[in-house]
Amino acid sequence: MTTELSVVAPPAPAVRHAEPRLPVPYRVIARWPETPDTVTLRLDPVAEALADFVPGQFAMVHCFGRGEIPVSVSSIPTTGGLAHTVRGVGAVSEGLCAARVGDVLGLRGPYGTGWELERALGQDVVVVAGGIGLAPLRPLIRDAVAEPRRHGRVNVLIGARTPDDLLSKYETRRWATAYTGVTVDRPADGWSGEVGLVTRLLDRARFDPPRSWAFVCGPEPMIRATARDLVHRGVSGDRVRVSLERNMRCATATCGHCQLGPVLLCRDGPVVGWDRAEPWLSVREL
């Protein structure tokens, strides 16, 4: 895991693949386990590359012989090389987790909307991650801490089920933020950090709500709890950017599997403002 930042692939030529529905071959050039069931794969194009990803966007990652799944970028070429972090919970994701250095995967993308950190210029930043939700936020956090003068105070709040489920443990410690808080639901022996819901960390964070932008990723109940709490504290709903997940298949706004209310999340999401997302997430059938 300590090699995470030291292995930096040379930037690949940004050539958009002509057929967006065909996966482009990418080779696994580094692989490291993040947790017992989660792996990060650093990828390099075998030949032509996809267009540049921005933090928050996702790719359809193809495990040949098994299928493909949407995975947000957990690192982008400009700050550490293109990487995806995958949790093994099904046939495809377990196949991806089992990939070894040298194996070839297929990638389609980039798809969807990004976090758009640039909107938070000169403002306080609150990043809230739950579980594997830290992975899509990692490139955003790297950008935010790399140029601290562009923003006000940067806060990173991380929640996980147990200490073993925390991603990026070593990198997290190095982030120069106004406040980085880590909390778990179920502490293990020797855990001396916080225990409780990730929203409790908002009490410790340093931000001025009317002058803040928040970026939230994690399970949807956690997103709802966090976004509501942020709004309750005075952060405007349109300044709370959340990453939503639905059943994405085509990723090209064709099949409709990822429809949430009036939008298709593969095209209009996954990152949307809470002011738009809240009404949709309040409908029980959606």
Binding site: D37, R87, V89, G130, G131, I132, G159, A160, R161, D165, D185, G196, L197, T199, R200, G218, P219, E220, P221, M222, A225
Partner: peptide, 16 residues
């Protein structure tokens, strides 16, 4: 409210 939300076991593979 925090305790109730934690009961959902949010971070399980598919959530609750």
């Amino acid at each position: 409210q925090s305790a109730r939300t934690r009961l959902l076991d949010l971070y399980a593979p598919y959530g609750s």
